[in-house]
């Protein structure tokens, strides 16, 4: 049972329990999920299904109560806070529903932030952040602050920030939740393009319209995977007849 080289995420019997008052909440009750490199996965499920918990674990914001999580060949279940921070910095690019840009910093400074924590020198930081913003077609908005940008532009700044460290995964949590339908489409087109360029994309959403853009949909219910399907004819894909990565050899 050797992990495939093309495998980015492998979870084995992943469990997460919370104590909420006197009640023990079993948010995840044993999730086995393998996501290969350059997959475009939508994680869906009703609220309370455990999809946010799964996202937090995949994003290394939290550690599981039980089970294994291997990210890019590296087990992360037992890491401490600072080690997780390093992994998040290198491997994960977060995109949030509410953009979460720092309001007093310019677009460029926002995109530079992960590089600051990565210890990249100032000049290189500036150059890489500029390039990342150019890739999301915001090369002319470098000095703008979030309140001087439209919602769609803000989310594109957030995407540039997520990608500037060349992470293994682009992990988006309801990325279009605060956008109108036209802007949502624009962001999803951007995700499609990034996927086509080789980026692994994971989108957590409860909107079927958004999930439709993905090539694979994982549906959670009551802390377990209820459905894991590949969908044909999805938009934004380059390879219609893609076969799923072999999970086990």
């Amino acid at each position: 049972m050797t992990p495939s080289i093309a495998e980015v995420i492998r979870t084995v019997a992943l469990q997460k329990h919370y104590q909420r008052g006197a009640e023990l909440v079993r948010a995840l009750r044993g999730v086995d999920l393998v996501i290969g490199r350059n997959e475009y996965v939508a994680i869906m499920g009703p609220s309370g299904s455990g999809k946010s918990t799964l996202m937090n674990l995949i994003g290394c914001l939290d550690t599981p109560t039980a089970g294994e999580y291997i990210l890019n060949g590296q087990p992360v279940s037992g890491l401490d806070d600072d080690q997780l921070a390093r992994i998040r910095n290198r491997e994960i690019g977060f995109v949030f529903q509410t953009f979460n840009l720092l309001p007093r910093s310019t677009a460029l400074e926002n995109v530079e932030l992960p590089l600051v924590y990565a210890g990249v020198a100032r000049a290189e930081r500036r150059e890489r952040a500029t390039r990342a913003l150019q890739e999301v077609e915001l090369g002319d908005r470098l000095g703008h602050r979030p309140n001087e940008l439209s919602g769609g532009q803000r989310q594109r700044v957030a995407v540039a920030r997520a990608l500037v460290t060349h992470p293994s995964i682009l992990l988006a949590d309801e990325p279009t939740g605060n956008l109108d339908s036209r802007t949502s489409e624009e962001i999803m087109t951007l995700f499609g393009r990034l996927h086509a360029e080789g980026q692994t994309v994971i989108v957590v959403t409860h909107e079927p319209d958004i999930a439709e853009h993905a090539e694979r949909v994982v549906v959670l219910r009551d802390g377990l995977i209820a459905e894991d399907r590949w969908q044909a004819g999805r938009r934004g894909s380059t390879d219609e007849a893609r076969t799923p990565v072999l999970h086990e050899v």
Binding site: D82, A85, R86, R88, F94, N100, L113, P114, Y117
Partner: peptide, 16 residues
């Protein structure tokens, strides 16, 4: 608090 959360999600360690 939210800014701190964002910074942490982007890779800020406790000491940062």
């Amino acid at each position: 608090t939210r800014e701190i959360g964002v910074r942490k999600s982007l890779g800020a360690r406790r000491r940062d």
